[in-house]
Each structure stands twice: as structure tokens, then as C-alpha cells.
Design a protein around this nucleic acid. Structure first.
Lengths: 199, 199, 199, 199
DNA sequence: GATGAATGAGTATTCATTCAT
DNA sequence: GATGAATGAATACTCATTCAT
């Protein structure tokens, strides 16, 4: 069981990388087994189908990211830093994206969307908790926290996931965040350098 | 030229409906010509490729919607109503969506995304103009108008295009809109019934 | 009838050029009419089929070349020069070949072969006549003239039509020619510069 | 590996026969798999493409012929017999050609040419070696052996591959061979019955 | 656990040709 | 003489999946 699990994890990593860089649709099972150096049968010994592989890949990836985010949440650091940390650990495919750059955009909508949805859904409770802490500390003031957090996450991935955005967009995003959460003007300025790094 | 154009428009409508209801990938050229009752050659007489058909379909749809939105903009009505009108005429696939309901979600990400992007891009200038009118009238007060408008459009399609949303989401969206545009609280409440109708 | 003939000749020239440069198989009727700026129907008004167009194109080309060769034959010049002249006027596609260079080799075997055969067949009697003159003048001495001439033509197109050949091949070819026709050694050396120009 | 190789060889033979008899272009992949009784996928499991199949078919055929020719060369027999043997084992498609007779001519130029070129290229060194032996024995006397041999091979395939040739053509060919190689008149007469058999 | 041979439905695209106007 | 809309048979190739060994 040890050895088998290992193999599966390895296959998962390979599939993940290929899905990310070439797109799910553009990656054939043959491509995967060629890269992994295994036989067709072996692949289907570990995975029910290609679709299920995608599911597993996403699950694996999300688990890792959410795990990291949870640790940030559990740390003894100021609320704003927690928020920053969660967002950073959540940003998907951060490492792989630069590999082939923009190639991810046109052909990978399917996977990208799937990940986006799931990630947002999993991140909302975590960030909500952080916001609540912020409210308790008097930094934020608002109701409907999960809804507000969700919108912030969605718009953030809309604007920033592509990698190309303007100064003004960042400014508006910060302004929106502050107003949505009921923070003092300038309270969320610390996000700026965080995003800027991506460029 | 008359006859040919007619035929093409008809094919475009058929392809449009099929793409929307079954998804672009799930609609084969064979499906289209069967539905249209024409020969393969005829299809390729009018379209270079399936991909190009998609492009044409989107173009056609967008043109119609943008045209309607422009007429709203040109009308002699109060600014808030203009905004409402533009958003309404822009909402894509309004009629077709209910046909097969949720079927649109998983397999049509590609087309949906393509439309979303283009539509937002085309709608931003129109709505920006409306917002500027509102500023002139003292209803709104903000800078970076196109950026703000774009975010509102993106988030609105994220939240509302799927058809399932909560009261609280609507409330937050309205709150966000007001704050983003610098309007008085309650100024955008008129959006609520507009969205609610969709459910 | 005048105007129609003109048009046909023009189409023939266009088809000829396209067949030569892109290959018969790679040239679609659509390509031809696009280049000629006419409608499909017009094309089929002038030609029965694509195949027949090829036939006509070859016929036209050959007629021109054979005509030139006949004039050489009729001229009052020494026999060796006649032979040289005939060969020169016969060399197929001399003008077009350099246009796209080697592109002609892989995809145009069909047409190339067709032309080769027909050209050789038409050239054999002309060259045979020249050789007979040469025999009468005591320059050559051999029997089975048409057979010998034919072999020389075939091998010459095998070796020289491609454009890449060596010094030694030329030397052997000249040696062979002299021996086949029963000429004195060195009698056919005048061919050398003729061929060399092609390189 | 055993089983797979077997199957591939079998497919190769089937494809070979069909290409030869109907022509490469006129043989569809569907034809081949129908004849072989396999599924489409199986075909593409063994061959990358139709083109590659042709390549493999030619390779296989050539290998066999060259192998036979090499054995002739290695045998302890007089030089003229060696030459005769090599030419005989090299003659391509000897067995299949009669199957559908002339059908091979118009539509199979592509494959025929491809084979011809490769075969000549591979046969030149073998025959050259034989000629050199002949020179050592005083039977032949010439320079530029490969070039001379190549011309003989080319002309021989031009004249004799079609199956229709005259007595006089044979006579001239023999004469040419003798003179090209610098042999005594009559030295190559033994070729005559060899060729005659084809008719 | 692992292999790899076999499957076959599915797909987009090409192109010479026809014919009513 | 000329048009261009319509045809439809033909074709190569893909790929997720199965299963006997």
C-alpha cells in the first residue's frame, strides 16, 4: 500500500503539471503515461478515468493550499497579515503559471474555472473567520461577511489571475475591499505590495 | 447576396442555439447540419471552420446586445434607469439559458468565458458614460470610473449569471455598487427587483 | 469566340503557373478561380474537369516548346548547335522552376512525369532527325537512332532536371552521348557549358 | 514483442500489396484495415500515419531486395553473373506488378518514384563493387564507376520497369552498357535473356 | 501490481462537380 | 457567357477505455 500510494502521488504530480501547462483537454492519457514512463494499463489501475484524474489532481492541489492557509490562520499574527497570508497561499498555480506563461489562458478555461470555484468555496470560511477577528478587534465593520469575502475573492481572481493589471485597478480593488469590509481608508493598503510582486 | 446572407444568418441562429444549449464542444458540425437540413459542403461554404462559426455566433449575439444597450443609453431617461437598462440588455443568453438549465455550466465554460470577456469589454464604455452622467448630476462621486464599472460587471456576471443567488448576495452587491460609485445609501436599490426577476 | 479563347488562354496560363509551383494535387479549383478572379461556374464553362485542365496545360506547354524546337531544327546552323538548341528549348518548366526551387520535387511527381513522357516522345523524332543529319555529315555513326536518342533524353532528364549534379556526371553523360551516337571523343563537349549554366 | 512484431509485419505486407496494386493515393486507411480485419485504432497503434506506413513499406521491401543482392555479390560466381543476379534481385515489385497490370502506371507515380530513387541509391554501391571486380579481371575498363552504374540503373528502370519494350531497345541498352563500362562488344549479351523474361 | 495490444465511435475538413438563374 | 449556392462522398486521424495475460 505504501508503494502504491507513492506511485499514485507521483502520477498525480505529473498529471497536475501537464494539465496546468498544456491544459486538461490538450493533455492525452498517452501524454501522461509517456511522461511517467508507465503503461496504459497501469494508468487505469490507479485512476478510473481521465476525468477522475482531474478531480484528484484538483483535490490534491486544493488540500495543500487550504492546509497552508489554515496554518496561517492558526498563527499568532495580526489580522491583516493573516488575510495577506491566506490570499498568498491560496493563489492557484502560482509556481507553474510562469512556466509557459499565458498558454494557460485560452485552453485551460475548464480546469481553471473548476479550481477557481472550489478554491473560492474553501477559502471563504477561512477568510470570513479572519474578517470576524478583525471586526472583534475593531478593524472592520460589516455584516454578511461570507458574501462580502466571496465577492472579494471572485473579483480578485478575475482581475489578478491573468497577471496583467494596472495601478488603477489595484487602487480600486483596495478601495473596494476597505469599503466592503467597513475598514478605515488606507487600512488595506498593505495588499498593494502583495499583488505588485506578481507583475 | 440577399439569399446567401439570409442563409448564413439562419445557420448562425441554429448554431447559436445549439452551442448554448449543448455546449460548443458537444455540438458537432454533423449535429448542426442535421438540424439545419443542409449538406456538409454548404456549411463549409458559409463558415471557414467550426471555431470561426463560434466567433461569428458570439459576434452576432454581442452586436445585438450592444445595439440594444446603446439605444438605452441614447434614451431620455434618468441615469439609474439607463444603468438598469444597459445591464438588462447585456445579460447574455437570457432567453436560451432556461432551455436546458444547468447543462450550460460544466461543458460550456469555453464559450461562456469568451462571451463574458467580450461583453464586459464592450459594456464598460457604455456604463462608464452613464456613470459620468450620474456624476454630473451629483448622483455618483468617484474616480477611475472604467475600472470600477468593470469590476461591477465582472462580479455581477460571476454572481448572477448562474441563476442561483441569495437575498444577502443581492444586498451586498447593491451595497458594494453604491460604495464603489460613491452614491448615497439606497440609491441603487432599484437594481433589486431587476435582478430578482431572474430567479 | 475571340474573347472566349482569350479568357481560356489566360486561365490556362494561370493554372499552369500554379500547377508548376504548388503541384497539381496541391492546387484546388478554388485556388485557381481565386487567382483568376472568376466564379466556379465560369471555370467549368471553360474546362470539363480539373484533370482535363492539366491535360490542356501540358498540351499548351508542350506545343510551345516543340514549336521552338522545330524552328531550331529548320534553321541553317551546324548539327551540334541544332541538338543543343533543341535540348534547350525542350527543358521543361525552365522559367518557373527557379521560382520556388525545390518545391517542385516531392509533390509534383505526377505532373512532372506526365510532362516528361510526353516531351520525350515529342522530342525523339526531332532529335532523331538532327542525328541523321549528323550521320549524313559524318559526325555520328549509329543505328537504332530513335532508341538511342530516347535513352539520352530520359537519362538527361533524370540527371539534370533536379538541378543538382556533379562534374563527373556531366563528364560521363558526354562520354555516353558520344559513344551512343558513334561520335569522335570530344565531339559533344559543347554540351558542357549548356548544362553548366543551370547550376 | 513477438506478437506485436508479427502483426506489424503482416500489416506491412497487406499495405504493401494494396499500395502496389491500387496505388498509394487510392488506398485509404479504411481499405487497409478492412482488408486486414482490424480496427482503426489498431492501425494507428502500429503506424503513426499513412505516410509513415508507406515509408515503412518501402523500407521493408528495399531491405529484402538489397539483402538478396548482397548475397549474390558475396557468392563465388563470375562477375557478369553477379551483375545479372543483382539486377534481378533488385527489380522491384516483380511479383505484384502483373496482378493488376498497367493500373500501376498512372496513379502510383509517387510510390514508384520513391522506390526507384531509393533502390538506385542502394544498388549503386553494390553494382559498383561488381564492376570494380570486373575491371580487376580485365572485363571492364572505365572511370567514374558509380556515376556510370547509376545511369545504367536509371535508364534500365525507365525502359524496362513498364514491361513494354522492343528488341531494339534491348539491343541499344546492351550496346550502351558495354560502351559505358568499356567492355568488349558482346560481353554483356547475357543480359538479353534476363530482360526478355519480363515480357 | 503491471503490461500493451486492441478497440471503434467520433470529428473536422476538403474538394471536384452540378445546375438553376 | 457567367455566376455562386449547394452538394456529399471521401479521408486521415484521435483518444479514452478495456482486458487477457
Amino acid at each position: 500500500m505504501k508503494k502504491g500510494e507513492r506511485r499514485k502521488q507521483e502520477l498525480l504530480r505529473i498529471a497536475y503539471k501537464m494539465f496546468i501547462t498544456r491544459g486538461y483537454e490538450n493533455t492525452s492519457v498517452d501524454d501522461i503515461i509517456a511522461e511517467a514512463g508507465i503503461a496504459k494499463g497501469t494508468y487505469y489501475y490507479y485512476f478510473e478515468s481521465k476525468e477522475q484524474t482531474l478531480e484528484a489532481v484538483i483535490e490534491m492541489m486544493l488540500d495543500q493550499e487550504i492546509e497552508a492557509a489554515k496554518q496561517v490562520m492558526a498563527a499568532e499574527i495580526p489580522v491583516p497579515q493573516k488575510i495577506a497570508g491566506i490570499i498568498t497561499s491560496i493563489r492557484p498555480t502560482q509556481e507553474e503559471q510562469p512556466i509557459e506563461g499565458v498558454l494557460m489562458q485560452p485552453e485551460n478555461v475548464l480546469m481553471h474555472n473548476k479550481i477557481r470555484r472550489k478554491l473560492v468555496e474553501k477559502a471563504v470560511p477561512l477568510l470570513s473567520e479572519a474578517v470576524e477577528e478583525g471586526i472583534a478587534e475593531g478593524i472592520f465593520a460589516c455584516d454578511c461577511i461570507p458574501e462580502r469575502v466571496r465577492m472579494l475573492l471572485l473579483i480578485s481572481s478575475d482581475i489578478f489571475d491573468e497577471g496583467s493589471f494596472t495601478e488603477r485597478e489595484v487602487a480600486v480593488f483596495i478601495d473596494m475591499t476597505e469599503k466592503l469590509l467597513g475598514a478605515e481608508p488606507g487600512a488595506m493598503e498593505f495588499i498593494r505590495p502583495l499583488i505588485g510582486l506578481e507583475e
